[in-house]
């Protein structure tokens, strides 16, 4: 426990590690913010076609399904896209380089 604590402290006071951590945290926040924004946009469009006086149980259920589906879609796209640009950059066709 002591060694972990000491390591944690030295990493915390190292300005290099601090900068790296801040940059990574900001990138993760930005990514999450974007996902939530898009997810809301799509799911609101689909699940609440005519906004009523309150969110109905059906609309709420649609939203939960839609959120999960959008996240699966994001993961599928991410995998496919990364695989493709990796392939292109290995072949050097120039498509990968343009992204």
């Amino acid at each position: 426990m002591d060694s972990i604590g000491a390591q944690g402290m030295s990493a915390f006071s190292d300005p290099k590690v601090q900068v790296m951590r801040t940059v990574q945290q900001e990138a993760a926040m930005q990514n999450a913010r974007m996902l939530v924004e898009k997810l809301n946009e799509h799911c609101f469009e689909r699940c609440v076609p005519k906004p009523g006086t309150s969110l109905s149980k059906g609309e709420e259920g649609c939203f939960t399904h839609c959120m999960e589906k959008y996240m699966s879609a994001w993961n599928t796209v991410s995998k496919q896209y990364v695989a493709r640009i990796t392939k292109e950059s290995q072949q050097g066709t120039g498509v990968g380089a343009s992204f």
Partner: peptide, 12 residues
């Protein structure tokens, strides 16, 4: 970050 931005736009 650029790759993630592309993934967001493609998913959309």
């Amino acid at each position: 970050a650029r790759i993630q931005a592309s993934v967001h736009s493609l998913t959309d």
